[in-house]
Design a protein around this nucleic acid. Structure first.
Lengths: 334, 334
DNA sequence: TTGTATGCGTTATCAA
DNA sequence: TTGATAACGCATACAA
């Protein structure tokens, strides 16, 4: 592997001049610039980024923490992020926290150790104080989660309110007996959604049966297993609200397996509007988040922070949209 | 930000001793070790990884290049990779090549610039010679693609043979008029699969109508759009073979939209066995790849290369499995 | 067991 | 426009 000295020697100049060419500095005569470029080509020289990063303390890498890979909900968000950071020369690296706080904590060391310039997390499974400490010291944007306790910059929809609304929609259809499928309690956004559900019922004085509130892994399998178990225990409900579309789809499969058809015997609604939700049969009533916009705004905020902006700790609440489809039993063809 | 000097000073030792503690060297007396650890805590010291990496020329990062993010096919593969590299202290970073050769090429610079210790690519959209050059100089494993021209270490199923088999399955059911949906020609695995399809038909002397061979983006939308257009032109076929499950599902939706039911009026098969394929209705007949094993073997090979092993350039062919479900019209309940 | 000193490859400051 | 050189933070060979 050749280094900058080799290039300098080969071109008959000093390493300083080579460095200038690498930086695209205008203060190099065209003639020497050419000589140097030829030397670079001849030696197949690639600047050692490790040394560059070390010297400049900059990586042009941005870390994206997702609760899980392979959840299509994030695909469009990532595209939104890339659309703003790529033109600025940044690259995104994606890791999964697997929803485990310990693992997520270890990922922040990647930032403390300066291997990336900033983090956008969609996981945020750490305690608020810990997050606050990181966010105060480093460029960190928390997205898709609204943190009430403490002050944070973050971009999200109002999960609680959206959950309130979609529950209300079912209440308006006349449902009285509900089952709720929540994602893991480590991920606060699931708690927000559960809270919205509770508030909606409370406001209408509809009783909540705590036995019908389940915590599951937020996967199709998780929804399926938990609902099937519940049905086997003889539970009765006319509507099921899920904290995520995968959970809802698992629930529908369990209901079908148990011989209950959706929506005629049980209404089901989800959250997120993943791709599968419109394809699945019955198609899923759900809450659509502005995924691309979430990505774009998160990225813009992060670049500001990297650029030296002070964290404003202003929560940016984006709009959501109820998407009414077949699974809730009030399907109106478009 | 405190550095190793600060810690040394605070603990009253030299930086060499601090460094030894950081490396976990046994040649430090428990007493000084304690003093140093306290100093580290007190100063909230984090070793600057940029400097460490620079010094050791090692990052403990592995780059995974996928053709696209959000394709659940890769989820299990990634889990397999993590299961072998995490215990060794490596971390995986995932990027998408978006199937664009130019973009993928730019990703190799991340390796040349030593920002990662090795690459596993599932995209491999670059010319064989280029790939060969990289694979010869750096730790690079090419997975899910069998490169015939030239010698490469790679891990894959025999895409051509699997495609031959599943096509044969349809031929055995009596189909004579086929439509084929291929993914982008930049991704060679799609070409391999198309080739297997062609060979199967040729062997049985079944004519291939080139107008019924379509190239699409490998998404549900891509399959849907192309097949709908074809149907609107009045094309007739009794079986459709797709180079990927997303394409197949898009195709089924287009057929349904056009009023043709699957499988009774048209048999459809896919490739990959993504999660959706068993959930979709009709469930999809497809080829299942040993995803976890692909991940594990790729990672093991890569770690060998990183450890200094010479590339053996031996292609490792893993087994696949035909999964017969509803969409092909020969559904036998398990 | 501990300390001293060197160098990794680059950028950037200063002088020429 | 160019060159000499210091500095970045750390690991390590060698000396003590």
């Amino acid at each position: 592997m050749s280094n900058i000295h080799d290039v300098a020697q080969c071109a008959g100049v000093s390493i300083a001049t080579v460095s200038r060419v690498l930086q695209g500095s205008p203060k190099v005569s065209p003639k020497t610039r050419n000589r140097i470029n030829e030397a670079i080509k001849e030696l197949n020289y690639h600047p050692n980024k490790l040394a560059q990063n070390f010297r400049t303390q900059k990586t042009y890498n941005i870390l994206i923490i997702l609760p899980e890979l392979g959840n299509t909900f994030y695909t469009e968000i990532l595209a939104g992020i890339e659309s703003v950071v790529n033109p600025q020369g940044y690259r995104i690296l994606v890791v999964s926290s697997h929803g485990q706080p310990a693992l997520e904590a270890s990922l922040y060391s990647i930032l403390e150790e300066k291997q990336v310039d900033g983090i956008i997390t969609f996981s945020a499974s750490l305690p608020a104080e810990t997050m606050y400490q990181y966010a105060n010291q480093y460029p960190v944007v928390i997205a898709c989660r609204r943190i009430q306790e403490g002050n944070f910059s973050n971009i999200a929809i109002d999960n609680e309110k959206a959950s309130f609304d979609i529950t209300n929609y079912l209440l308006n259809l006349g449902h009285k007996r509900f089952c709720y499928l929540a994602g893991p309690s480590e991920l606060p956004l699931y708690n927000d959604r559960l809270l919205g559900f509770r508030k909606a019922l409370k406001k209408r004085n509809v009783a909540i049966d705590e036995n019908l509130i389940l915590r599951c892994e937020s996967t199709i399998q998780g929804g399926y297993d938990n609902v099937l178990k519940l049905l086997n225990r003889g539970a009765r409900f006319s509507a099921l609200v899920a904290g995520g579309d995968t959970l809802a789809i698992g629930a529908i499969r369990a209901l079908n397996r148990f011989g209950r058809s959706v929506p005629s015997e049980c209404a089901v609604v989800g959250f997120d509007d993943i791709e599968l939700s419109s394809i699945f049969s019955p198609s899923l009533t759900t809450v659509r988040q502005p995924q691309r916009e979430i990505g774009i705004r998160s990225a813009e905020q992060l670049l500001d922070l990297i650029g030296g902006a002070k964290p404003t700790f202003s929560t940016e609440i984006l709009d959501y949209e109820l998407v009414i489809r077949e699974s809730s039993g009030d399907f109106r063809p478009e």
